[in-house]
């Protein structure tokens, strides 16, 4: 099974740690940022796809990754959308849009605070 994990921050790192318990799961990671917590922590060597995930880029990312399942594991501030009032709402709406548009199942992983 191929799983695309969107986000290599703290939340992504937790998800990746759990997924690695099953060696049969093939993991692909995507994160638009330059620095990745999961890489710093040594959980993964590198991020496979450097791209901000929006409805405009969804198709390309899915073509690249060919996943069976997508896990959205990014906090709003890690999504590469910048900072502005209302960005939380925009990020939430964006995630819903991605869930609706994707042809493979997309699940959102709850944010880890702190």
């Amino acid at each position: 099974m191929r799983i695309l994990v969107i986000g290599a921050g703290r939340t992504g790192a937790k998800v990746l740690k759990q997924l690695r318990k099953n060696p049969l799961i093939e993991i692909i990671t995507a994160d638009p940022r330059q620095e990745h917590y999961a890489v710093d922590e040594g959980i993964i060597d590198q991020v496979d796809i450097h791209e901000v995930l929006t409805p405009l880029t969804l198709e390309t990312v899915l073509e690249q990754a060919q996943p069976d399942l997508v896990l959205l594991a990014m906090a709003t501030e890690d999504m590469g959308l910048g900072k502005a009032p209302g960005m939380d709402i925009l990020a939430g709406a964006l995630k819903e849009e991605l869930c609706a548009l994707s042809k493979v199942p997309v699940l959102e992983v709850a944010r880890v605070r702190g």
């Binding site: 929006t54 409805p55 405009l56 969804l58 198709e59 009032p85 209302g86 960005m87 709402i89 925009l90 709406a93 964006l94 819903e96 849009e97 548009l101």
Partner: peptide
Amino acid sequence: NTATAAMLIPVAMTISR
């Protein structure tokens, strides 16, 4: 009104794709 715009911008992205 900012919340409204934030909810609609992703829909605009979907159209533009």
